[in-house]
């Protein structure tokens, strides 16, 4: 432990779910802890805290990343999107709706991360193959084993979006 004193916090300005925010965070704080503890956005889950599970997946500048491995300070000037920012005026994103329709979860703890991975995929690739959907969530573990339905939901969402 380098030091026990409270480290100097720095100001970080970023876009969060389409809105500009400025935060004061210590350099070592992860984006995940910042979202959950500082901003109260607890939809993004902390499961392994070391980049092994994908439950903390958010989009940074449109790409899925593990927020537990991302320092909040490194997000200055970037656009961070979380599960809370997907629905528009109460209308669910097609991926969200597909998860409900296809029962693509059981306990639901991995769901926000899975959804964000698929939202990221569909922005890059409007008509993914089944294999591409599967690969897109290969970094998102689901201990309940809902994968069959997660993949089905991803394919259905792509169709609905088109």
């Amino acid at each position: 432990m380098a030091s026990q004193r409270e480290p100097a916090a720095v100001d970080v300005s970023l876009r969060l779910n389409g809105r500009d925010v400025t935060l004061r965070v210590p350099a070592h704080r992860s984006l995940l802890d910042t979202l959950r503890d500082t901003l109260g956005l607890t939809g993004t889950k902390k499961v392994c805290n070391e980049g092994d599970c994908g439950a903390c997946t958010v989009l940074v500048d449109g790409r899925p990343v593990y927020s537990c491995l991302t320092l909040a300070v490194a997000c200055a000037g970037k656009h961070v999107e979380t599960i809370e920012g997907l629905a528009r005026d109460g209308d669910l994103h097609p991926v969200q709706q597909a998860f409900i329709d296809h029962d693509a979860y059981q306990c639901g703890f991995c769901t926000p991360g899975q959804v964000m991975s698929l939202v990221g995929l569909l922005r890059e690739n409007a008509s993914p193959s089944e294999d591409e959907v599967r690969r897109a969530v290969s970094g998102n573990l689901c201990r309940c084993g809902a994968y069959t339905n997660i993949v089905a939901a991803g394919l259905a969402a792509a169709k609905a979006k088109r």
Binding site: M1, A2, A27, H28, S30, N49, E50, G51, Y66, C68, L69, T70, L71, V73, A74
Partner: peptide
């Protein structure tokens, strides 16, 4: 040096690396 951080952040979190200054 810090680039993507996918390795360094875990090394720091597990106490295997103890950098005082990071250059992104």
């Amino acid at each position: 040096a810090l680039a993507g951080g996918t390795d360094l952040v875990t090394l720091v979190r597990h106490g295997v690396a103890r950098p005082e200054r990071l250059v992104d």
